[in-house]
């Protein structure tokens, strides 16, 4: 398994042109091995750029991306190997499906890795299970699947490469609550069962509160807050300051606190709120 770290990363778009934009500004962070880490921030906070740096799709203007302490750009010719170790699922990944069957599409990544037929079949089966896709669908064309199923197939395509670090950009965007839960649970299971690190980029604080161990909050190209879920939600007030939506239950806790009702800090689940209120009503 591998540890991922960023060291003083700066990324500038359109350098030396009138359109120059600093997307990331001296960002340093470490992603805990084996954790599910959430990255949250507004559109334009730099989180999408960050994601593309993690597996070497983009090269930082300055600073280093370290995988197990080694700069991933040490040998630029071997960047492809890094992409197999750090798997990236882009936003709306269903638009990348191209093979005739779902099975062939999920097998595409493992095939590019040069794995044996047998290993590929095994990986396809395993990945299908992770995302909860019905095996009957494997021999169907991507066009015959619903939006949610396509999304799951596309994510399975990256999981089948069994990356040590799985990065997903908005994996649940546009899905309904049921579809969202299936996908996020599958992603968490992948991390647990393979011991891989999972990084989820999302706009939804409620999803973060439910599925992530650690949270990194980005704002204006910098890390604004980071730490374990409890640590980050202990600063719930700071999150609303940069205009992020905190979970509804956290808003309620903040409101009650304002009215002088004693509640512990950092409530972000209904259960935690229930525990706190239960003792007040006794």
């Amino acid at each position: 398994m591998a540890e991922l770290a960023l060291e003083n990363i700066t990324y500038v778009y359109g350098e030396r042109t009138p359109f120059e934009i600093k997307a990331l500004d001296d960002v340093s962070l470490t992603v805990r091995e084996g954790s599910v880490t959430g990255i949250i921030g507004h559109t334009g906070s730099g989180k999408s750029t960050l994601v593309q740096l993690l597996n070497g799709l983009e090269r930082p203007t300055s600073g280093r991306v370290l995988l197990d302490g080694k700069d991933i750009w040490e040998k630029p010719k071997e960047i492809k190997k890094i992409r197999f170790r750090v798997g990236l699922v882009m936003q709306y990944p269903e638009y990348q499906l191209f093979e005739e069957t779902i099975r062939a599409d999920i097998a595409f990544g493992p095939k590019n890795m040069g794995l044996s037929e047998e290993e590929i079949n095994h990986r396809v089966k395993e990945a299908t299970e992770f995302v909860g896709l019905d095996p009957i669908l494997l021999d169907k064309s991507p066009f015959d699947l619903s939006g949610g199923q396509k999304r799951r197939a596309a994510i399975a395509g990256v999981m089948a490469m069994r990356p040590e670090i799985l990065v997903l950009d908005e994996p649940a965007a546009g899905l309904d609550p049921r579809g969202r839960d299936i996908i996020l649970k599958g992603i968490r299971d992948y991390g647990k069962k393979t011991g891989s690190t999972v990084i989820i980029v999302s706009h939804s604080m409620e999803d973060m509160a439910t599925y992530c161990d650690d949270i990194i909050v980005m704002s204006h190209g910098k890390v604004y807050l980071s730490g374990t879920r409890d640590e980050v939600f202990a600063h719930a007030g700071k999150l609303t300051e940069v205009g992020l939506d905190v979970p509804q239950i956290t808003r309620l806790a903040l409101l009650l606190e304002e009215r002088g009702i004693p509640l512990p800090h950092g409530i972000y689940t209904v259960d935690a709120a229930l525990d706190a209120l239960r003792s007040l009503f006794r």
Partner: peptide, 27 residues
């Protein structure tokens, strides 16, 4: 979430009148 919370509290025997939806109503 606020609705869930109120229903959970009610299930535990806390007497609460009304169906709040927003955190403000719930508070």
């Amino acid at each position: 979430q606020c609705t869930s919370l109120i229903h959970a509290l009610r299930a535990e025997g806390v007497a609460l009148e009304g169906e709040p939806i927003t955190p403000e109503e719930c508070a």
